[in-house]
């Protein structure tokens, strides 16, 4: 079954306290060289049938309506090859 992935990220100008907490933890754990961390959300949508442009447009509407808040977040939609196909 095809999988459509929606990534939701806080807009660059919006403060991301969770990302900052992760960034702050890295040097304490001995990881150096990371200068910034932003934390977002990844949604995996299993869709029925072929992933057509109409399906992608529909998923974009889902992302815009529910999965993200356009005031503070951006999203991207992409198709991911299913595990079954790869196997």
């Amino acid at each position: 079954m095809p999988r459509v992935v929606v990534d939701v990220m806080p807009k660059p100008e919006i403060l991301d306290p969770q990302g900052k907490a992760v960034l702050g933890a890295l040097p304490r754990l001995g990881f150096t060289g990371v200068s910034d961390v932003r934390q977002g959300k990844r949604f995996e949508l299993e869709v029925e049938g072929e992933v057509t442009d109409d399906v992608l447009a529909e998923v974009s509407r889902v992302a815009e309506t529910l999965l993200s808040n356009p005031v503070i977040e951006n999203f991207t939609v992409r198709v991911e090859e299913s595990v079954e196909v790869r196997a």
Binding site: P10, I14, L15, P17, Q18, K20, A21, V71, I72
Partner: peptide, 17 residues
């Protein structure tokens, strides 16, 4: 109310976490 777009803006995690 913000999520409903009845009010502008949004509320995010406290800056001090």
């Amino acid at each position: 109310l913000c999520e409903s777009h009845l009010l502008p803006g949004a509320l995010i995690r406290n800056d001090h976490r």
